[in-house]
Design a protein around this nucleic acid. Structure first.
Length: 221
DNA sequence: ATGCCAGTCGTAGACTGA
C-alpha cells in the first residue's frame, strides 16, 4: 500500500496540481496539510471524482488537514488532539482505513522563536507525544503522516548552521521528535537511509526546492 | 537577514503566517 503526505499550501489554489498528482502518483492513501480553506470550501467533488473517499477538517485562512483513500472507506476516529479544549487550530485528523490507523498531522511551525508561537508548538508536540503513546500501545498498524515542521538532524537541511535560531531546528523541537521516535515508531525515511544527507526541509522562499532539484515540474510550475 | 509562497479584506496591496 502506498501512503503519501503532501502539504498543499492552499487546497483550492493548488487544486489543479493536487488532482494531477493524484492521477499520476495514484497514492492509495494521501494525507494533506495546510488546506487554507473553511470546511465548506473543501473541493470534495473533484477528489471523489478520482475515486477517493475523503475526510477533512477545514478552517478559515489557515491550517486544515485531510485524509484521502482509494482503498476502502474512511472511518474517522478523531479530529483534534486531546489535551487542550481551547485549541482552535485544525491540525490533526485520524481515521481507520483498510485495517490501518492513519493520523494526518500538521505540527505548528513555531516561528519566531522565542515567543508564544514557539511555546504553542512545544505544547502541541507534547500533546502529540501523549496521544501517540496510546496509538503505539494499540498494537495495530498505525501511521503518523504529515508536516512535522521539524528538522530532526543536520542531515535534513542544506546548511544547518543557518537554522540554529529557527523553531524547526531548535533543540527542544529536535528533542521532542526524538522522544516521539523512541516510543517505537519507525522513521520511514531514516529506516532506509540512516546516514544519507537527504533534505526533509526546504526553505520555500527563493524557490529553494526547484533550484536544488533541477527539476522541470515543481509545484510552482 | 532577506523573502520569489497563499489567504484575507476588499478591490490595491499591506498584512499575516510560516
Amino acid at each position: 500500500m502506498r501512503i503519501a503526505t503532501y502539504n498543499v499550501n492552499g487546497v483550492n489554489g493548488r487544486l489543479r496540481v493536487l488532482l494531477r498528482w493524484l492521477k499520476e502518483a495514484a497514492p492509495d492513501i494521501a494525507c494533506l496539510q495546510e488546506l487554507k480553506a473553511p470546511q465548506e470550501k473543501f473541493p470534495e467533488g473533484p477528489i471523489r471524482d478520482l475515486g477517493y473517499d475523503v475526510v477533512w477538517h477545514g478552517q478559515k485562512s489557515w491550517n486544515g488537514v485531510a485524509i484521502l483513500s482509494r482503498v476502502g472507506n474512511i472511518h474517522e476516529t478523531r479530529r483534534g488532539l486531546p489535551g487542550d479544549p481551547d485549541d482552535s487550530h485544525s491540525r490533526y485528523i485520524e481515521a481507520a482505513v483498510n485495517g490501518i490507523l492513519i493520523a494526518c498531522l500538521y505540527l505548528p511551525n513555531g516561528n519566531p522563536r522565542p515567543g508564544p508561537k514557539f511555546d504553542y508548538k512545544l505544547r502541541w508536540f507534547d500533546r502529540l507525544i501523549g496521544h501517540a503513546a496510546e496509538l503505539v500501545a494499540c498494537k495495530q498498524p498505525v501511521v503518523l503522516a504529515g508536516d512535522f515542521n521539524v528538522m530532526p538532524t543536520e542531515l535534513d537541511v542544506y546548511k544547518p548552521e543557518r537554522w540554529l535560531d529557527d523553531a524547526l531546528f531548535a533543540p527542544e523541537a529536535r528533542a521532542a521528535y526524538a522522544t516521539l521516535l523512541k516510543q517505537g515508531w519507525t522513521d520511514a525515511l531514516r529506516a532506509r537511509h540512516p546516514r544519507e544527507k537527504i533534505y526533509t526541509f526546504w526553505d520555500y522562499f527563493r524557490n529553494a526546492f526547484g533550484r536544488t532539484q533541477a527539476c522541470a515540474s515543481t509545484t510552482f510550475c
